[in-house]
Amino acid sequence: MEQYKKMYLYKRIVQAKLFMDNHYAENIDLVHSSEEACFSKYHFIRLFKAAYGKTPHHYLAGIRIEYARQLLKTDKSILEVSILVGYDSPTSFTAAFKKIVGMPPSDFQTRHRLRTEKISANPLVAIPNCFAQSHGFIEGKESDVSK
């Protein structure tokens, strides 16, 4: 019986996490998430932290910034990205991004662009030679690993 009760609690916490995963770009907050899990706000925070090691607030900020990292790798502007991941202003987005990633979004974009240019010029700079050889990425060169 105890095990069933525990699994039921886990299902509700997981539902709340998946709700955040699917609605991170919307104006959701702790009330929405705890309602999704059918818990009081404080009970929800405690259970969520026990399961995921961080508060729902920190988790939501983390996934918003993670999606922002992916979007910044496209040709979208910082303003566009900040709106797409649910921030009210590019200033608050930049501050949150810097806190989590350790650099401003503009620096992140620049680093990504430089890396992409380098790899586009020669993809083999991103592939350890043993893999490039053994998988036939280097034309006409016998693989050292299959000798």
Binding site: M7, Y10, K11, V14, K17, L18, A51, Y52
Partner: peptide, 13 residues
């Protein structure tokens, strides 16, 4: 993972 029951439920979902 940090919590196997939560991870199990999520991946099953």
């Amino acid at each position: 993972c940090k919590d196997i029951l939560a991870t199990y439920e999520e991946l099953k979902e």
